[in-house]
Amino acid sequence: MSGDPYAALGLARTASEAEIKAAYRKIAKADHPDLNPDPAAAERFKAAARAYDLLKDPEQRRRFDAGEIDMQGQERPQRRSYREQAEAAGHPYARGYGFESDPDLSDVFADLFGRRGGPQGGGHDFHMRGQDYRFGLEVDFLTAARGGKTRISLPEGGDLEVAIPRGVRDGQTIRLRGKGGAGMGQGGAGDAYLTVSVAPHPDFRREGDDILVVLPIGLDEAVLGGKVAVPTIDGPVNMTIPKGASSGRRLRLRGRGINGGDQQVELRIVMPPKVDDELAAFFEEWRGRHGYDPRARPKAGG
């Protein structure tokens, strides 16, 4: 099919709305999985359903023909975050296989499966579980670390509040039972699957269940030590800087990470904005009496 909805329906780009509907009805009657067990037929049916779902909407069809969106309804070249594929290779707006919301095509399936007017003449009801929806969900770093709530827009309209569990990881999938597409007959609703993307934070970085933060300290704090306020995911806390602290040294705040993890505080010495004459004179004198080589390797056994 190569991403061409017209080819999936066996039509030219000049096909009318009636021709599009007729082509889909024909394929549905021949290749629906409940009528034709051939896996190739099921793939043809899915491709035709996705194609019909795109082309039956005049605005969507116009945008596809203009090159603004692809067959999945995705913007070119950018992707939309919350309307991602409704199934692994499915349509982003998740309308099942294109017939539930179309009254004419509902009649087609009533004829096929005996749903019209209930079971008559040996017919049987048609039941189908609703489509699973799949979304990409970007969550800010602190919400992912602490847990919280956000809202997503649903393909058929409206929105849904989603509880973000504490400590959710980048790439993790959240399953929302029964929040997918509506089923047919006695078929239950599908599920919604949210693949989480955690946005970076300017101060914090996650390492397992630990949080890493780089803490700038002054030259005097490195030499003399002291108490400083340190940001954590739950608010600032005071921490003691030991005398003689070096850049790159890590201090630990126990239990200040995620789900019982710790916070690692990496020190970084920051020089004053300007080295004045007084500071320079002091270090000239100090170096003359206490100079040392910071690049010297410690002696073995020393």
Rank of each mutant, 00 (worst) to 15 (best):
P273A: 09
V270Y: 15
Y193D: 00
K243T: 08
D210K: 09
R254H: 13
I258Y: 06
R175F: 04
L160G: 02
S247M: 05
S247Y: 05
G261F: 06
E156N: 00
D220W: 11
S197C: 05
P155A: 00
V162C: 04
G158C: 00
S247Q: 05
L215H: 14
K179Q: 15
Y193N: 00
L224N: 15
G188L: 06
R205T: 11
D210A: 08
H201L: 01
P165Q: 05
E266K: 15
E161Q: 02
V270W: 13
I211R: 07
R169N: 08
P231H: 10
G187C: 10
R175I: 05
K179M: 06
G171K: 13
G208D: 10
T232E: 06
T173L: 15
A229R: 10
V213M: 14
D170L: 04
E266R: 13
V162A: 03
G248V: 01
T240L: 03
G226A: 06
G183D: 03
P273Y: 14
A163I: 04
P272Y: 14
I258G: 03
V230T: 15
P202H: 09
L212H: 12
R256Q: 11
G225N: 12
R254K: 11
E266L: 12
A192K: 02
Q264P: 10
V237L: 11
I269R: 12
G167Y: 01
M239N: 07
P236W: 06
P273V: 10
L267N: 14
A245W: 01
P155Q: 01
G190R: 00
N238T: 09
G158Y: 00
R252L: 08
A189E: 00
E221I: 11
A199F: 07
G183T: 01
G157P: 01
D191A: 01
L176T: 06
A222H: 07
D191F: 00
L253W: 07
E266I: 04
H201R: 03
L212R: 12
K243Q: 10
K243C: 07
V230I: 12
G226Q: 09
E207T: 13
P165D: 00
R249K: 14
P236D: 10
A189F: 01
G181C: 05
E161G: 00
G158P: 02
L224E: 12
M184R: 12
I174S: 08
N238Q: 10
M271A: 15
P231Q: 09
A199N: 10
G180K: 01
